[in-house]
Design a protein around this nucleic acid. Sequence first.
DNA 1: ATAAAAGTTAGAGCTAGCTCTAAGTCAAGC
DNA 2: GCTTGACTTAGAGCTAGCTCTAACTTTTAT
Lengths: 161, 161
Amino acid sequence: MLYSIGEVAKKLDISTYTLRYYDKEGLLPFVDRNAAGRRVFKDEDFNYLETISCLKEAGLPVKQIASFIELCLAGDRTLDERYDFLLEQETDLEAKMASLQHTLDFLRWKKWYYKRALAAGTESVNCLPETTLTDPAVRAKFDQLVADGADPKQLGELDRT
Amino acid sequence: MLYSIGEVAKKLDISTYTLRYYDKEGLLPFVDRNAAGRRVFKDEDFNYLETISCLKEAGLPVKQIASFIELCLAGDRTLDERYDFLLEQETDLEAKMASLQHTLDFLRWKKWYYKRALAAGTESVNCLPETTLTDPAVRAKFDQLVADGADPKQLGELDRT
DNA sequence: ATAAAAGTTAGAGCTAGCTCTAAGTCAAGC
DNA sequence: GCTTGACTTAGAGCTAGCTCTAACTTTTAT
């Protein structure tokens, strides 16, 4: 099976502009051309496209993805380099996810903070007297609930019955 | 305690340029000025700065963060809006993390793929005969190992003794 | 045979998020 | 009193990643 750039764009739900931009940046050196100079995608190209979209999702800049694709096309002598590259991306992504988990923890603490404020009708229930500084005891209370096994997501959940 | 823009920049490990840019974009309306017009940060401002850096980490555009900060300064009448905002960010971030988990799964499958290729000395062990299409049976094997309880991270780990 | 749809290139334009420069003010140390 | 360094503003400049335009060619449908 062969596919035009428009068909590929539709399948991957991206614009033909973007695909041509990727090609220009060296992400699609594997794409063939027909006699008229039009891009012709093959079934096996979707292997590469899947890899590209994965690396993009992981947050890699286009140039780095291009150099990985280049390694792929260079044949079996770059197998170890490709493995190392993927290992590095795995490590980076694990770090990123850990960081996002902290961000999520923060959002949940703040949700609980606002749930308390809503119940009291005022944010000041969470603050030290006469200030807008968060009362460390309030934060400690939240941490304690979580340490005692409460689900941080549900702790901040509002009853809207 | 009061802090200059330079001190805050050092504490947060960002540039003073960036802090002024944030101010220009409305992220720091809470920062006071001294008689000479210089920015003066208070201890309680770090509450906001922590929130800002959390929302940035979550991937929110600066303008959206600015509108949340505006809500915060508007007082108790916006408590419910602020709660809803955080709830939405939590939902979005959960979706994002799920998507990154898929990306990580893909990287680990590819690591295993290359581990196999390295062991054989050639990528073709993973492909259908006479093609560069990944053999579905190879992929299925990996999925089976994971389904049987193997750690996808360790499956692709290389022995480098 | 011709009109519409889809492809091609080169290159301009756009947005977000910084990052820096220029010209000037202010504060601290010698 | 003078230099050094940190601050101020307005606005220019930069990069990444698209996104689109213009001018042209090819393919498809009527």
